[in-house]
C-alpha cells in the first residue's frame, strides 16, 4: 500500500475526510451524524494519513499530541455541562442562543459545544490508538 501514488493522494483524502467529518458533526443534531460518527471519520482520516506518510508526519501536522485533543474534548464537554450552573438549571441542561446572521438562523447551544467535545475526544483518542499502533517503535 505504501506506494508513491498513495502517499501523494493520502493527504488529500485525509483532508477531505476531516472536512467531511466536521460536516457530519455539525449536521448531527438534525440528520444522521453527530460527534461520534464525525469523530470516527476524522480519526480514520488521520489514520490514513499516518499509514501513508508516517506517524511522525501526522504528529507534526497535528502540532499537539492527539491525546491532548481528547483531554480537551472531555474538558469542554464537561464545561458545557457546567454552564447551566449560572442559570440555576441542572447539570447538562441544553442552553440555546439563536440569532440571525444575514437572514440565516444560527443556533449556538451547549449541546453543540458538547457534541464538539465528543468529536474532539473521538478524534483524539482514536487517532492516538491508531497512530500508536501504526508506529509503536516510536518512543513516546
Amino acid at each position: 500500500m505504501n506506494t508513491v501514488i498513495f502517499r501523494t493522494v493520502a493527504p488529500g483524502i485525509a483532508a477531505l475526510m476531516l472536512v467531511f467529518s466536521i460536516f457530519v458533526l455539525l449536521r448531527g443534531h438534525n440528520e444522521p451524524g453527530g460527534g461520534f460518527i464525525g469523530g470516527l471519520i476524522g480519526a480514520s482520516g488521520l489514520a490514513v494519513y499516518g499509514i501513508a506518510c508516517g506517524v511522525a508526519e501526522v504528529r507534526r501536522a497535528m502540532v499537539i499530541h492527539p491525546i491532548v485533543l481528547a483531554g480537551f474534548g472531555v474538558f469542554i464537554a464537561t464545561l458545557a455541562g457546567l454552564m447551566p450552573l449560572f442559570v440555576d438549571a441542572p447539570f447538562l441542561t441544553g442552553l440555546w442562543w439563536i440569532f440571525e446572521l444575514e437572514g440565516q438562523e444560527i443556533a449556538l447551544s451547549t449541546p453543540l459545544i458538547f457534541d464538539i467535545g465528543v468529536y474532539a475526544v473521538v478524534v483524539g483518542a482514536v487517532a492516538t490508538i491508531a497512530l500508536t499502533l501504526e508506529n509503536d517503535e516510536e518512543h513516546y
Binding site: G28, P32, P111, D115
Partner: peptide, 9 residues
C-alpha cells in the same frame, strides 16, 4: 430540544 435527529438529541 431543537433537534430532529432523535438519537442524537
Amino acid at each position: 430540544a431543537h433537534g430532529r435527529n432523535i438519537v442524537n438529541v
